[in-house]
Design a protein around this nucleic acid. Sequence first.
DNA 1: ACGTCTTCCTGGGCGC
DNA 2: TGCGCCCAGGAAGACG
Length: 267
Amino acid sequence: MPELPEVETVRRSLSGLVGQRLRKVELPDGRLRYRATAAQFKGAVAQQLTGIRRLGKYLLLDFGDFPVLFHLGMTGRLLLTSPGASAYTKVVFRFSQATLCFVDVRRFAFVLAGNKALAALPAGVDALGVQNREALIQKMTQSSAPIKSILLNQKIIAGIGNIYAAEMLFAAGIDPHRRGKRLTAAEAARLITACEKVLRRAIDKKGSSISDFVYSLPGEREYSTGAYQKEFLVYNRAGEPCKNCGAQIQKTVLGGRSTFFCNVCQK
DNA sequence: ACGTCTTCCTGGGCGC
DNA sequence: TGCGCCCAGGAAGACG
């Protein structure tokens, strides 16, 4: 689920926690990709939350110089709610004025702290923080992997997942199967621009809610959902007409992932 | 070394 | 209604 726009939406939803002190961490069920333990949060307990950063699909809660890192995997959620609200609440953070629950139905999400958090950060440049476009263009065009796999590779560019990769390649008019090497520098540049445009628009719409992406609204009892799924031009639209040319949207498997594209508009 | 495939989990949706 | 199968936003690790 959570790609860059969803994680950014979560980050914004939690901004009210900044300045609050972490009183206590509870572990109803530490089973996640990496088992969560009480010991790992020692450096954060009794500290004030000084900021929340996002890097790619990762969220970093900074307690002074002690970071706590979250990755939501496929179904992870960070919700301002009571632990009993979900049967899948894994970790509970009791702040001075609020309770933050880390919830995951599956166990692909994880939380790391301190040095382990820093070590887990993605190597790639954040997809919305590209300073050196030339360097990124070079990385993209020297790989022999399909361009879609390159977009999904967090070591090259961080934050893009299966949904947005499809939408970006459509926006740039590039076939997902094209090898990075086979792209011209101009096409790679066009793709980077398309990436930023799609991500910004998706953030404006508070992400995509396909089945279960929700976020907390400060002060609200109900969860909210994103709206970008209403604007999908290719993702999950196999067999439907391309909104640009009318041809049927194609679905294939590329790198083990469902891949949607228009074989007329994307070359 | 690099690209691709398999696996980790669980629940929802669909066909029978 | 129930069962079994397939699929899913991610990505590490195994394999070739």
